[in-house]
């Protein structure tokens, strides 16, 4: 019996393939996908669009996502806006404080790749969030429409269901050893 890829999840390879484990796996994924609390890294213009996504018209809450102010309560970090060298340590620190499993959605051109403020133009901006923290989903746009952010959230849900997002490696670079909750 072939299993679709998304059914194989966290417990894959740990135990022989019995149907009940696959379902437990899906249960865990379902629970995780439908309650993604996100930390709003509202850094620049994309932050305003992120506020609009949490507003009544686009309503990210219907997907079970509630904005959180504390990194310890968040599963997802939506990096929305330009990251500067001054902000970078704070971003890394907040990411480190998020408990596992944690995901990152990079919203907008500035946090995808530097965008308007990439390395050729701006001297004080980091050209992309993935220079600092590992990113799961990139949502392009400047700023992306709220529908695009919701699409990114749906793509993240698929990724959560697969095994790729369950284990987080530490990001490259010499960022020090802060206390990351495992």
């Amino acid at each position: 019996m072939t299993r679709k890829r998304y059914e194989m999840g966290i417990l894959e390879n740990a135990l022989p393939e019995y149907a009940v484990f696959s379902r437990l796996d899906r249960l865990i994924s379902w629970a995780r996908e439908n309650s993604i609390a996100y930390l709003t890294m509202d850094l620049a213009c994309c932050g305003v669009e992120m506020l609009q996504v949490s507003g009544g018209r686009f309503d990210i809450e219907r997907f079970g996502s509630v904005p959180q102010v504390s990194p310890r309560h968040a599963d997802l970090m939506i990096v929305a806006g330009t990251i500067t060298y001054k902000m970078a340590p704070l971003l890394r620190r907040l990411y480190g404080e998020m408990p596992l499993p944690k995901y990152v959605l990079s919203m907008g051109s500035c946090s995808n790749c530097g965008g308007l403020f990439s390395w050729e133009y701006s001297y004080s901006s980091v050209s992309g969030a993935d220079k600092i923290i590992p990113v799961d989903v990139f949502v392009p746009g400047c700023p992306p429409r709220p529908e695009a952010v919701l699409h990114g959230l749906l793509a993240l849900r698929k990724r959560i269901a697969s095994r790729h997002a369950a284990v987080r490696e530490e990001a490259p670079g010499e960022w020090g050893k802060e206390r990351a909750v495992k």
Binding site: T82, T84, F117, S122, Y123
Partner: peptide, 9 residues
Amino acid sequence: LLHRGIEKI
């Protein structure tokens, strides 16, 4: 924290 150097750009 959001100083992007727009005037230099």
